[in-house]
Design a protein around this nucleic acid. Structure first.
Lengths: 189, 189
DNA sequence: GCAAGACTGAAACGGTATTTCAGTCAATTT
DNA sequence: AAATTGACTGAAATACCGTTTCAGTCTTGC
């Protein structure tokens, strides 16, 4: 394996275990079995290294999400599957979990920015699927950016936020029912 | 004016100007022109005093919101007016602004709890209006708690959150259009 | 010619001396 | 006697400062 990949792998491990703030470049160098100087031949700063790791994670998330689609299923069914997969990734992927925790507890600025970027990437991803649906004639033309925003925030509210004030979480059926009746129904031709 | 009211007025001023953490009971006593001990004959703790002030504010907010209804207008129109009024209050009322700022910057636990309580109060308020609409036969029967949650979070997303990543805010027309097509349309009989 | 790790200075941390403040209570006023 | 006051207390927050940590550099060595 080439040195760049060794370093990325080591950094991913360290960010996952200790978070952004608590991983040191010395630590990454040690895990990767390279001198610290070597890291700087591939990545200009710690933040650039971090961005590379996170970008890789985002690509993997889109991939996993995409793999949940069922050919021949309706737009709603696949949109639901994709977004649920994104949310599942969000609370399953160890690095993602660590970043959310670090943002909440430490308020590390670099982590806050990265989480914002990730959200924007998710929104772009959802909007592109809506645009695709419109182009294929499955959906009415609409402001896809706005709908993607409303849709994603609704999912976050029902799947993530709801549990903060309620003991038992909503069932997936309750969620599909209410969203099929509201946002999705307005999208269909 | 009686001493209890003097104290509440003084506390409201101080909480509004300096926030919860930075107002001292000595400060409140001074503004109210009473000895510090006197405050404790009316309020057991600083937090109890704080809760009284906030409760008064919530009542005022519901009041203001209620005054925005138009007799004879449709459910959607009035629901929209009420919620927009709540959100306007949220970003206009000086004490409310201060509390949101203190929560974001200082993370004062007492303030976090109070903001959570306020949100629950708003949600109960919206849910009660939905129940009323169902009882009057204007709306289909539904899980009013769930719909109130989705509705309020959608408004927050479109009116408040949207501006964090976008330069120009959504127009009220864009908001009413998308919500009439989605959540509201599913509610009507 | 490339990798390594000792080196640097700015920023973060920890320990502690000092200050602040919620809540009490004995003295004072009404 | 009932109500009011503000000096007082100690727990907790804050300011201060000496020490350590660490991102990024740069000379040394292979």
């Amino acid at each position: 394996m080439n040195r760049r990949e060794e370093i990325m792998l080591a950094a991913e491990k360290s960010f996952t275990m200790f978070g952004y703030k608590a991983t040191t470049m010395d630590q990454v160098a040690k895990i990767a079995n390279v001198g610290k100087g070597t890291i700087y031949t591939f990545f200009a700063t710690k933040e650039e290294l971090f961005h590379s790791i996170v970008w890789k994670m985002v690509e993997e998330m889109k991939d996993v999400s995409e793999r949940s689609v069922v050919v021949g299923a309706s737009f709603q069914e696949n949109a639901h599957a994709r977004i649920m997969q994104v949310l599942k990734f969000r609370e399953t992927h160890q690095l993602f979990i660590k970043l959310i925790q670090e943002e909440k507890e430490l308020r590390t600025p670099a982590v806050g920015e990265v989480l914002k970027t990730i959200e924007q990437e998710i929104l772009k991803y959802i909007a592109s699927k809506i645009d695709r649906g419109v182009a294929k004639g499955e959906l009415k033309p609409c402001n896809s950016e706005l709908i993607a925003y409303l849709l994603y925030k609704s999912y976050l509210a029902l799947v993530v936020d709801w549990n903060r004030t309620h003991d038992e979480q909503l069932t997936e059926e309750q969620i599909t029912d209410v969203l099929n009746d509201t946002i999705f129904s307005s999208l269909l031709v």
